[in-house]
Design a protein around this nucleic acid. Structure first.
Lengths: 345, 345
DNA sequence: CTGAAAGCGCTTACAG
DNA sequence: CTGAAAGCGCTTACAG
């Protein structure tokens, strides 16, 4: 393995000078620089990152904690984070938040393996996260956020997204509305639900408790939840699912029961993952600005690595409704259209 | 930040003794060990990984290069790799093979950021991979393999998988068969196609050139390819898609054209990603042993990190046919059933 | 502008 | 069994 000392010998300079040429910042006479550059070339030198990290206290790596890789939203977010990190020349060290991953990730900051951490699935009772925050480690939350903690956070405006859906459905004459969601206590879906309820209220509608079904965030939960709604004597004419995966399950349940979408029931999801546009689902959904969220999260984290004292902020980026075939109308307000036929299930 | 020197002072021993207690291997008198252990506890010491890496020339991290995160197979493989790496207490540094990721990953070995690299999307003309192999860096290929290179490789037996599909379809009376695949030159799908052709040949059947459509590996490629097959006067009665994503696209195309699956056409995929079992697709497919592949790949890589001279091997793990609703029969041989009605498209 | 030197925080021969 | 010391490969004051 070739070291900066080897390069120095070839260039006929001191090892420190090689380091200066590499760093770019320091003043080096052009002739000297050229000799070093040539020596760098001939030796094929690559700096030892471990040594550099020890001296500079910067690893050039960022930790990312993702969960539920089974939800295709996370691979999307992961890709966006990976792209951004590559663009700012940072490496990505990845952990799964299921299992001991979160703790290992937090340890990695103290071990000087990463400079900071991006959490994508923060929950209130995540001890490792609390520990990281208590020790002042650079941490940013993206996607899921946590109220009342001092930490940079990035989310899309889930409340506004839920309102968009409510306004859209109410604006198209729906009066009997359902909700399929995940467990409580998760910021994203809680906020979407809150916005949805608020939007319905403003339209003079309410969300009957019997038309709200909660499960986990899997396809099967949407499937079972939708069955329950459609098995009723008084099923909803439109159902909002707080993420696309649940909506896919719901769509499949409707298919299995012979209930047509959108003729018999409208379906709206949330996330706009790529599958949402597939023919099988053709799902109206709320699109999160994933790339912008990832970019901002990384920028905030790196800023905090440089300055741990900067005041933390929570950022809510706007989301937009994407209308597809699972609802049969243009967005409310853009054009009027009659209410859909009520469900025949 | 607390160092091993701080721990030593608290314990009243030398810094070297702290290091010995930490390493576990060295002999330390029980009383001394206890004092160090207590000091470790009270100080909350965490070893600096950068310093350790510099001394030991082991980073405790493995690089993983994944591509096409848009194909849900890769998140599955990634999860399996992540799980295995966690189990052997290795960190995962992730790069996307699209863009400069592969080169950055290879550089990371020389930079001593990772001890070795797992490639999941090797292709013959990947210069960074060639470079890594030429320099003798620890590298293992999983999923996609490359013939004629000296490197540990792990794949499922794609050839046998393709044969399974051919035997199954031929055994159920299909005589006019189609193939939807990706571009040539990728080991996985090439081998599946080869096996499929061989299996058909053995059953006395051939694969007409006009019933073979190639695209990329996206949903839309399957969609367009299936349209072309179904638009023919003489469409196939069964179509093998060399991965599930293509099969989903094909399924959606059939749906759009009003062609029923499996009544009008049988559909078989490859991978058995979780979505394959969703109602919308209910896809007969070939299941790859992803966890076993990931486990083996990591074991091989770590073995090579310890001994770069060990002879490389290519491992092919068995795959199995999973029968679902996109074909209307139990596996050939298990029970006889008549041929399906021919396509009405 | 450049070199000699210190030091980042460990591990591991080398003595004793 | 334990300590003093060397050294992994860098960066960055400190002199000059």
């Amino acid at each position: 393995m070739v070291t900066s000392r080897d390069v120095a010998r070839v260039a006929g300079v001191s090892q420190a000078t090689v380091s200066r040429v590499l760093s770019g910042g320091a003043k080096v006479r052009p002739g000297t620089r050229d000799r070093v550059l040539r020596a760098l070339e001939t030796t094929g030198y690559v700096p030892n990152q471990a040594a550099r990290a020890m001296r500079t206290r910067r690893t050039g790596s960022v930790g990312v904690v993702v969960g539920r890789i089974t939800n295709p939203f996370y691979p999307e977010l992961l890709t966006a984070l990976s792209r951004k990190l590559g663009a700012v020349e940072q490496r990505m060290v990845l952990w799964d938040s299921e299992g001991p991953g979160a703790q290992t990730a937090v340890d990695a900051i103290r071990q000087r393996v990463v400079d900071g951490l991006v959490f994508t699935t923060a929950t209130a009772d995540l001890p490792p996260l609390a520990q990281a925050l208590a020790s002042g480690s650079p941490v940013v939350l993206v996607n899921r956020t946590l109220a009342g903690i001092s930490c940079d956070q990035v989310t899309s405006d889930n409340d506004a997204g839920g309102r968009l859906v409510a306004a859209y459905l109410a604006g198209h004459g729906h009066r009997r509305l359902g909700l399929l969601s995940g467990p409580r206590g998760i910021s994203t879906t809680d906020e979407r639900e809150t916005g949805y309820r608020a939007g319905l209220r403003e339209a003079g509608l309410s969300l009957p408790a019997e038309l709200v079904v909660r499960g986990e965030f899997h396809h099967n939960d949407g499937y079972e939840g939708m069955r329950r709604l459609l098995d009723r004597d008084d099923p909803p004419s439109a159902v909002f699912c707080t993420n696309d995966l649940i909506a896919f399950g719901a769509r499949d349940a409707a298919r299995a029961l012979g209930v047509r979408v959108p003729q018999d029931v409208w379906l709206v999801g949330y996330d706009d993952i790529p599958m949402a546009s597939w023919e099988a689902f053709d799902l109206t959904t709320v699109r999160q600005p994933i790339a912008a969220m990832a970019d901002l999260a990384v920028d905030l984290l790196l800023a905090r690595v440089e300055d741990r004292e900067r005041p933390p902020h929570t950022h809510r980026l706007p989301a937009e409704l994407v209308v597809r075939g699972s609802t049969a109308g243009v967005p409310a307000g853009a054009q009027s259209s009659g209410p859909p036929r009520s469900s025949g299930a």
